[in-house]
Structure formats: structure tokens, C-alpha cells
Amino acid sequence: MSEKYCQVCGSKLIDKELEGEGMVPFCPACNEFRFPMYNVAVSMIVINKKTDKILLIKQYGRDVYILVAGYVNRGEQLEHAVVRELKEETGMTASHIRFNRTKFFEPSNTLMCNFTVYVDSDSELSTNKEIDSFNWFAFDDARKNIKPGSLAAEFLNAYLDEL
């Protein structure tokens, strides 16, 4: 059980059988089942259509390249979060987006939803304070430069392997 306390009243949860679902966290004080909660985020393979290159970024003082990513706001559609995060972090406007795949990332309790995002050019590129540095890479070079063993690398490599 990942949730230990009720998100409504704060009481300690117990595991209880729910027909058709198996063992589910249950709040005896509220007399309600409390399905596990988790974060949702989007990550994106940003491709410049003019140069056919992929944008990789460095963040938070780390010296490794990763994909642009961000959390989805409550009630926000994934596609809207992709467009918003791209604009917030890079200043660029998405001309087209395509869903790739998802994977649950246990360390941050987050369902990561990966997309390919196409921009017409990098003329709008103006990074915010979340991005320390960035670089545009040819497809093979992006594969070589992304943080090895990361979820970002897993998403990028899966995308490139399908081309």
C-alpha cells in the first residue's frame, strides 16, 4: 500500500478487499476506499522541423542532458500540458504533438507521459530559469548525449528505435 493516511480526514488506512479490484486502501473513519494517488507529468522529445534536430536540456546544476518535462496541473489535458510546458520552459510554440508512451517512475511517484513535439524553428527559443543550458543534437548524437540509464533515455531510445 503506497498511501498510508486518508487524503480526506488523515486517518490511518487499512487494506481491505474490494470485489473486482483486490486489496485497496480503505479509510475506516470515512468508510471509503481510497485508491492510490500519484503525480502525472509530461516529457517531450522536441524536434526542430527546420534543422531535424532534437533539443536536450540540463537542469538544476546537473551536468547531464535530459528531455524537457513538467507536471500536469489538476484537470489539465496532457496535450495542453505539453504545449504549456514547452512554452514556459523554452518560449517555443508547438506546431504538432504526438503521443509516444507512458511509464511509471517510482522515485517520484509519477506517471510520465512522453510525447514528440515539433517546432517550426528555434527562433522563439528563450529558456526560463529552470533550464541551465541546452543543445540541439542530430538524432544519433542525441542518443549518445542523453543521460544514460534515465527514463529520458528510455523514451528517446524507444522513439529513435521506431524510426
Results as ranks from 00 to 15, higher is better:
V83Q: 08
L78E: 14
Y65M: 05
R101N: 13
D120V: 02
D141T: 15
M1R: 08
A94N: 06
N135Y: 10
V42F: 00
T110I: 00
F35T: 15
N135R: 15
E89M: 09
L13S: 02
C27S: 01
F35V: 12
I47A: 02
I54R: 05
I146H: 00
C27M: 04
G91E: 02
F33L: 05
V83N: 00
V42G: 00
V64K: 11
E124H: 10
A142N: 08
K50N: 12
V42H: 01
K87D: 05
K58I: 06
S123M: 07
D52K: 13
Q59G: 05
S2G: 13
S121Q: 07
S43H: 06
Q59C: 07
S133H: 07
N135T: 12
C30V: 00
V24R: 04
M112G: 01
K147L: 12
T90M: 05
N109C: 08
N48A: 00
P107L: 06
G20A: 03
L86W: 07
D122H: 04
D161W: 06
S108A: 10
E17V: 09
F35S: 09
M37K: 15
E154L: 14
L13W: 05
M112N: 09
N31R: 14
K87V: 03
K4P: 01
M44V: 09
Y118C: 00
F26H: 10
F99H: 12
S126N: 15
P36H: 03
L56D: 08
E79F: 01
E19F: 07
P28E: 07
L160A: 00
Q59N: 13
Y60L: 06
F33I: 12
V24G: 09
Q59H: 09
N157S: 13
S11V: 03
L125K: 02
V8E: 12
L86R: 05
F115E: 01
L78R: 08
Y60V: 08
L55G: 01
N73A: 13
V72M: 08
L67Y: 06
V40I: 14
K53W: 04
N39Y: 12
K4M: 11
A142Q: 06
E17Y: 12
I57K: 00
A138R: 10
F99W: 10
F115P: 04
V117K: 00
N100L: 15
P36Q: 13
Q77T: 09
C27W: 01
L67T: 13
Y38D: 06
M44R: 07
K16E: 11
Y38S: 12
A158C: 10
L125V: 08
F134V: 01
Q77F: 13
N31I: 02
E124S: 11
V117W: 02
E3M: 11
P148N: 08
D141F: 07
D15K: 10
L18M: 14
T51E: 12
L160N: 02
E85H: 13
N39C: 02
E162G: 01
I131Y: 05
P28I: 08
R143T: 12
A81K: 03
L67P: 04
D122G: 11
L67D: 02
D122T: 09
C30Y: 02
T90I: 12
N135A: 14
D122I: 09
P148W: 11
C27H: 00
V64T: 14
H80R: 15
A158K: 11
F104D: 03
C6F: 05
R34E: 13
L13C: 02
S126P: 02
Y60K: 11
V64R: 07
N100F: 12
V64C: 03
S150Y: 09
S121R: 04
T116G: 02
E106A: 13
P36D: 14
H96F: 15
